[in-house]
């Protein structure tokens, strides 16, 4: 670290750096084992899909599609007892109205880089 920057550190932080971080390192054997385990994991063969499992997956998908098609067809012809999907699904505005503003704010906040946000808050770009 640059000596000037080091001198500018508060005394408590300078003293703590001299003391170290308080963590201990694992023994050498840990790293030897870690290297072996990593290589073994990299070389572990990938899961191979067998013909039989693929057949079952295709059969299940076809059955699901058939069920969906029958249900939709019933609704389209007016035989179903449920309301049409367009009427039953609330709009996004209605959905958002049920969510408190704090929750929306928290969601947006969690998507922003905390680091950049903080920097801009401390020093707006136009100042």
């Amino acid at each position: 670290m640059h000596s000037k920057e080091s001198e500018e550190l508060p005394a408590a932080l300078r003293a703590l750096r001299e003391k170290g971080d308080g963590f201990v390192s694992p023994p050498d054997a840990y790293f030897a084992q870690l290297a072996q385990e990593t290589v073994a994991r990299v070389h572990r063969p990938a899961v191979v899909r067998t013909w039989r499992s693929a057949t079952w997956a295709v059969a299940a998908s076809l059955l699901l599609l058939l069920g969906l098609w029958l249900a939709l067809d019933r609704d389209f012809r007016g035989e179903g007892t449920t309301t049409p999907m367009a009427q039953a699904t609330p709009s996004s505005a209605e959905l958002l109205a049920d969510i408190p503003p704090e929750a929306i704010e928290e969601y947006i906040g969690s998507r922003l880089s905390e680091f950049e946000t903080e920097l801009y808050a401390a020093q707006p770009p136009n100042e």
């Binding site: 703590l16 971080d21 308080g22 963590f23 201990v24 390192s25």
Partner: peptide
């Protein structure tokens, strides 16, 4: 793996 004192904590 942490053996620090109160200040380090």
């Amino acid at each position: 793996f942490f053996d620090g004192d109160a200040a380090q904590l």
